[in-house]
């Protein structure tokens, strides 16, 4: 972790059980916001309401709709997730699926591929901290997934790291 990260505002999305999170994570402050993926938020219904009804905000009425609004307010975004088949855990994935309002419905071309436009000019750097047992193949898949995500969300910088336990992953936070 670079020293610069210490002074930047940080947003953490994690899937740790409440008691473990209380033990391991600092509380919210002006420069450090924590969003728990537990209890699980409702899954994305694929309605495109976040693009066409209330642009930028999910229309479902639970706390999962609050997450998209946090992105552009922070300089560093950390995802602490159990590695599941080489991807994010279902709980973390549910929050991200509900947050595609940070993108626009309209397409752009980047990396010679079609992708959604970016709603915000200011975007945090992304840091993926995966934890749990992992095969070599799952690690390779996760790297590909992160690269694909980064083409979509287009942060200036990103990183991906793997840890044996949630404690180790949280230990890597600024």
């Amino acid at each position: 972790m670079g020293e610069g990260a210490q002074t930047k505002s940080t947003l953490v999305l994690h899937d740790l059980p409440a008691l473990q999170a209380a033990d391991l994570l600092p509380g919210d402050s002006a420069s450090f916001a924590v969003f728990s993926a537990l209890p699980a938020v409702h899954y994305c219904m694929g309605c495109f309401g976040c693009w066409l009804r209330t642009p930028g905000t999910c229309v479902l009425k639970d706390r999962g709709s609050e997450f998209a609004g946090l992105f552009s307010r922070h300089e560093n975004f950390y995802v602490v997730s159990r590695l599941v088949f080489g991807g994010l855990s279902p709980d973390v994935k549910a929050v991200l699926d509900r947050s595609i309002g940070i993108l626009l419905p309209f397409f752009r071309t980047t990396h010679k591929e079609m992708h959604h436009g970016l709603r915000y000019d200011k975007r945090p750097d992304f840091h993926y901290l995966f934890y749990g047992d992992a095969t070599e193949q799952e690690v390779a898949t996760a790297r590909k997934l992160v690269r694909a995500n980064m083409i979509n969300f287009e942060p200036e910088n990103y990183s991906v790291d793997f840890y044996g336990s949630p404690q180790e992953a949280v230990g890597a936070l600024p």
Partner: peptide
Amino acid sequence: FPLYVDSIPSHLLRLLD
């Protein structure tokens, strides 16, 4: 299934998990 954020929609991922 449809692709969601480069991966599997969370409700289907939960079923598999």
